[in-house]
Simulated assay, not measured.
Amino acid sequence: MTQAATVPAGTTQAIDATTPLQTWQLQSNATLNATNATTLQMTSAAGGVFNLTGSNVSAATGSGISLTNASANLDNSSVNSATGIGISAVRNVASVGGSNVILRNGSVVRGLQGGIAGNRFSVLNLRNSTVEGTGATSFGIRMLEGSLSATGSTITGGLNGVTVGTDTQVSTVIPTTIVLDATRVEGKTGSALVVGINAPNFPTVANIEVRNGSSLVSGNNTLLEVRRGASAGFLVDNSALTGNVTVASGSSANVTLQNNASLTGDLQNVTTPC
Score class of each variant (00 low, 15 high):
residue 187 G to A: 11
residue 146 G to M: 02
residue 190 G to R: 09
residue 172 T to L: 13
residue 185 V to H: 05
residue 156 T to H: 00
residue 189 T to K: 05
residue 158 G to A: 06
residue 196 G to N: 09
residue 189 T to S: 14
residue 166 T to S: 14
residue 177 T to S: 11
residue 153 S to I: 04
residue 167 D to F: 03
residue 188 K to S: 07
residue 165 G to Y: 04
residue 184 R to M: 13
residue 181 D to G: 01
residue 192 A to R: 14
residue 156 T to S: 07
residue 172 T to N: 10
residue 191 S to Y: 10
residue 191 S to D: 15
residue 165 G to Q: 11
residue 175 P to H: 08
residue 176 T to W: 01
residue 162 V to G: 07
residue 176 T to M: 06
residue 170 V to Q: 03
residue 188 K to R: 14
residue 196 G to M: 06
residue 148 L to D: 09
residue 162 V to F: 04
residue 190 G to P: 05
residue 189 T to R: 07
residue 154 T to N: 15
residue 169 Q to T: 12
residue 171 S to H: 02
residue 168 T to W: 01
residue 194 V to T: 13
residue 163 T to M: 10
residue 178 I to M: 10
residue 177 T to M: 09
residue 175 P to I: 02
residue 167 D to L: 03
residue 184 R to Q: 15
residue 184 R to V: 13
residue 153 S to E: 05
residue 148 L to C: 09
residue 164 V to K: 07
residue 181 D to M: 04
residue 189 T to N: 07
residue 170 V to W: 00
residue 171 S to L: 11
residue 177 T to R: 08
residue 154 T to E: 12
residue 149 S to A: 08
residue 164 V to G: 07
residue 168 T to E: 14
residue 173 V to A: 08
residue 189 T to Y: 02
residue 171 S to E: 08
residue 173 V to I: 12
residue 176 T to C: 08
residue 156 T to R: 07
residue 169 Q to R: 15
residue 162 V to T: 11
residue 149 S to Q: 09
residue 171 S to Q: 13
residue 196 G to F: 05
residue 165 G to D: 11
residue 180 L to D: 12
residue 166 T to Y: 03
residue 150 A to K: 14
residue 165 G to K: 08
residue 170 V to G: 01
residue 179 V to Q: 15
residue 193 L to S: 12
residue 165 G to R: 05
residue 154 T to K: 15
residue 160 N to E: 10
residue 168 T to C: 01
residue 181 D to A: 06
residue 193 L to Q: 11
residue 192 A to I: 01
residue 180 L to F: 15
residue 179 V to S: 15
residue 159 L to A: 13
